[in-house]
């Protein structure tokens, strides 16, 4: 228990960010129309692919002879990239329906 408290105290900056981010996340999408639910879910799914940064860091610091670590890290980068690239691409496809309509005649 002491160690947990110690950890929070040492990393309090992170915990402040944590708490504030919770509120930002809620605030930012508080007025979203139903038609955008699925695209927004897809878009935030793409954002959760930000673990790619962690994957790059972990593979980047694995020793070249640690084959288990290398293969797990490789897989992590691969899957996170799938999440990011696929996520943004599919969101963009969904949002194409909101393209501006051509100006009306008359």
């Amino acid at each position: 228990m002491e160690q947990v408290i110690q950890y929070i105290s040492v990393n309090q900056e992170e915990f402040y960010v944590f708490i504030l981010a919770v509120f930002v996340g809620i605030e930012v999408i508080s007025k979203v129309p139903t038609v955008l639910h699925t695209p927004l879910m897809s878009g935030s799914n793409a954002l959760s692919g930000v673990v790619i940064v962690g994957s790059i860091l972990v593979l980047g610091k694995t020793a070249p002879d640690n084959y288990v670590g290398l293969s797990l890290g490789f897989l992590a980068v691969l899957l996170a990239t799938l999440n990011v690239v696929g996520g943004f691409a599919v969101t963009n496809r969904m949002l194409e329906m909101f393209k501006k309509k051509p100006a009306k005649k008359q």
Partner: peptide
């Protein structure tokens, strides 16, 4: 980024 998705996702 993660928490943003976490809380926005929960509200969504």
């Amino acid at each position: 980024g993660g928490i943003l998705v976490g809380s926005a996702g929960l509200l969504l």
